[in-house]
Amino acid sequence: MISELLINAFLVTIMLSISIALIKTRTVIFTVILTSAYSLVAALMFITLDAVDVAFTEASVGAGISTILFLAAMAYLPKKEEESINSQFIPALSCIILGGILIWCSYDLPEIGQLTAPIHQHIAPEYIRGSKEDIGIPNIVTSVLASYRGYDTFGETIVVFTAGVAVLMLLENKNPVKKNKSQPKQKFKKNA
């Protein structure tokens, strides 16, 4: 049991180092590729945490399609990130304080894998029993997804549909109304 947790801790540490590299880099292509690697390691994490369906989804969606969309969008954008003028001290300080508070609170969370944790007491045993008797499908995740929580999944499908239609409306405008960038300067000159 301890070896499983050790693998887990190791993978999480890899994710931490990838995200630190993400803070350091200023090149857009590195950013995209590191995000893809981050998703792939997250998929491995999900396998060690027994979530095979989620790992499947993360590997195909997070590491596959998402990277392709980032690369396709990257072609129209500047390739380098500029150095910021303002200091990043205040954002970093507030993140560190908030993270410290969260870590302090983590001592109140149940330890990983405890059968007595509140989350395992409420309705999950009901679903595991019902998936065999009421529905007769071996994959509990599918039966909860499509049958017990069918309304949720309906809503999520509509959200995906709406997001797709919104992107089509934003990007398929052939002649976007352009605000001419040189216009303000011309006005300025006329006044002077």
């Binding site: 027994d50 369906d53 989620v54 969309l69 989350i119 999950a124 997804l145």
Partner: peptide
């Protein structure tokens, strides 16, 4: 293992990539 968080996250990943695409556009 508890299947309920798996279901919630499974749908959230796909919705997440759709909304990321909206942000990119």
């Amino acid at each position: 293992s508890n299947p309920l968080p798996h279901v919630l996250i499974l749908t959230a990943i796909v919705v997440g990539v759709a909304t990321t695409a909206l942000g990119l556009s």
